[in-house]
Amino acid sequence: MTADDRTPDDVPFETVSSSEVTRGERIRATIDEWILVPARILWSDWRARVGTLIMLLYVLMGTVGVWLVDAPQIGEGERLIPPFTDPSYPLGTDSMGNDLFAQVVHATPPMLEMIVAGALFTTVMATIVGTFSGYKGGRTDKLLMMFTDILLTIPGLPLVIVIAVILEPREPWVIGIILTLNAWAGLARAIRSQVLTMREESFVEASRLMGLPTRTILVKDIVPGLMPYILVNFVNSARTVVFTSVGLYFLGILPFTNHNWGVMMNLAYTTGGALYTLRAAHWLLVPMAAIVLLSFGFILFAQGTDRLFNPRVRARHENNAGANSSDDADENSGKVSTHIQG
């Protein structure tokens, strides 16, 4: 053992540093750990890659797109121009001469706002209630879960409709939250049961015994373990928000104050007679395509991200040459030992 060649007072316990690391180095290390490594891992899975690209496309559309594409104007073009025929109206126009492409683009920012508000509300709410309830246990847990169970069984859409009818929300972020009013309950329950198991993990108990505050334990030990789950559900609830909001706009339940793909569908369906004539079909199909593509991106991303938080995959993508080589050995011998045992 190495202890033999040390003098008794050379106890590692007293060691302090003799060198300084520059601030820049530390920042670079942080960036590497939190941005570059996850990005590399995402990129290595085709599903996550395609999903990310699709999501990026919509983000660009909702930010840069609105500057590049003028807002649609009534009568700016001929009525019901078919798609892909007129370069000024790439996706054609509706029965009032509105540019459909511009409508799709200008519906994106409020939609993004709704998605972010709704998905954030769902995941944050669920994570807080789930981790708190699971980690605390006891009476707190019982009461919170009773409340959650009730919310869980109330069907979402009718509840949302009733509340939307009563409140008539106009702000996109308010709509986003209303749409996910009880969507968090299921996630909270799932997170709670995971926390219940994690709470008993040795490393969590060790942190507890070291006297680390509950806050720190939740943030450093518990939540990172739930991150894959939370992220996947963030994306899933984003999809729920898109589906529900478009559905409600389509039904005409939400007030038509924003551009929305659902509003386009509603107008095409009710006033454009898209059901009866093939001439107006594209008016209906364009917003549909916008929804399907976005939600396709969401699902692909969710399917591809489970690798993101796997430390085994992570270690392979780190810039640390030393750890890199030994990891390969470890991982492979791990594989072998499972073969041997299994």
């Binding site: 999809r239 898109v242 559905g247 389509f250 399907v292 939600s295 396709f296 699902i299 692909l300």
Partner: peptide, 10 residues
């Protein structure tokens, strides 16, 4: 995955 990305009402 594709079919699941279509909203039922669409």
């Amino acid at each position: 995955i594709f079919l699941n990305s279509i909203p039922y009402y669409v």
